Simulated scan of single mutants.
Amino acid sequence: MAEPTPRAAHVLVVDDDPRIRQMLIRYFEEEGYHVSAVADGRGMRDALQRNAIDIVLLDLILGSGEDGLMLAREIRSRSDVPIIMLTGRDDVVDRIVGLEMGADDYIAKPFHLREVLARLRTVLRRQHPSPLQTIDTEDGNLIRFNGWMLDPRERRLVTPEGEDVALTTGEFNILLVMAKHPGRVFSRDTLMNLTKGRNYEAFDRAIDAQISRLRKKIEVGKNSPVLIKSVRGVGYVFTGQSPARTV
């Protein structure tokens, strides 16, 4: 048996197939989780109201005719509880729509129980990172590298010429955590955990795309140094020269 999580997270399974409900109940309880399982949206609402649910495994199509996507949107309108969609359809459009509705991950049936467990643990880690795995946005100290200035408090990036550069929230968070730890190699999964990504975190290429956009903004000109390097098979490392921080 795998080592249980430090705290008995409460998993809510919403699936109209009693065999799947029983299978997931038995498996996750053996792994140290507390599990509730219901067959429809009505049971889901009741469970969410009565219990402190930590994560929801939600079937896309329920026998009652209810749409799992709509239920995911309903949950997200009221709560930040993580959602993993379960479905017999492996359609890219459904997957994207599910993520846009607020789902954190998407698993196609038939699935392997160990994979579901691994995905569930990953989503829970991202939702509840350890104190050492968070960005200290309260630290107002400026970060300087290669003439650039990064202001965590005002969330500003200023060029060596004194011009502001517009960054998305994801781009800023990635640059902030990497610039605070120059020379440290970050995997994609670590960056997703640290920056608390949600909308597209189920796709490995999400971090790659943000890194690519960020490079275009900070590595300008033919003579510009490479500030973010790819580490083959691992992730990325910030190579900017960061003098001592100033207040």
Score class of each variant (00 low, 15 high):
Leu12Thr: 10
Phe111Trp: 08
Leu167Met: 06
Arg155Leu: 15
Leu191Thr: 02
Ile96Arg: 06
Glu161Cys: 10
Glu171Ala: 11
Asp136Ser: 11
Glu100Phe: 05
Leu194Ser: 03
Ile55Pro: 01
Leu175Ser: 03
Arg213Phe: 07
Gly183Gln: 11
Phe172Glu: 04
Glu31Arg: 11
Ala166Gln: 13
Leu176His: 15
Asp17Ile: 14
Gly32Cys: 07
Ile207Asp: 01
Ala47Met: 12
Ser77Leu: 09
Arg156Trp: 14
Ala37Val: 10
Pro243Met: 13
Thr169Trp: 00
Leu175Ile: 11
Ile207Arg: 02
Glu219Leu: 09
Arg205Tyr: 12
Arg78Lys: 07
Gly63Gln: 13
Pro18Asn: 08
Gln49Leu: 14
Pro6Leu: 15
Leu113Pro: 03
Ala52Pro: 01
Gly233Ala: 07
Arg232Asn: 02
Leu12Asn: 03
Met70Lys: 09
Thr190Cys: 04
Leu142Gln: 03
Ala72Ser: 11
Trp148His: 05
Lys229His: 11
Val116Ser: 04
Gly65His: 05
Leu48Ala: 07
Val81Glu: 00
Thr168Lys: 04
Asp90Arg: 08
Asn199Lys: 14
Thr122Gln: 09
Pro182Thr: 04
Gly233Asn: 05
Thr195Glu: 01
Leu48Phe: 07
Gly235Pro: 03
Lys229Asp: 13
Asp90Cys: 09
Pro82Asn: 06
Asp105Val: 15
Asp189Tyr: 00
Asp151Tyr: 07
Arg232Tyr: 04
Tyr200Phe: 15
Arg188Cys: 02
Ala166Met: 11
Asp46Ile: 12
Glu100Pro: 00
Gly88Ala: 15
Thr239Cys: 12
Ala108Asn: 02
Gly88Glu: 06
Leu175Phe: 03
Glu161Met: 15
Gly63Tyr: 01
Arg21Asp: 03
Glu171Trp: 02
Ser130His: 06
Val247Arg: 14
Glu74Cys: 01
Gln241Asn: 12
Gly43Pro: 08
Gly233Phe: 07
Ser224Phe: 05
Asp105Lys: 13
Arg76Met: 13
Arg89His: 14
Met178Arg: 03
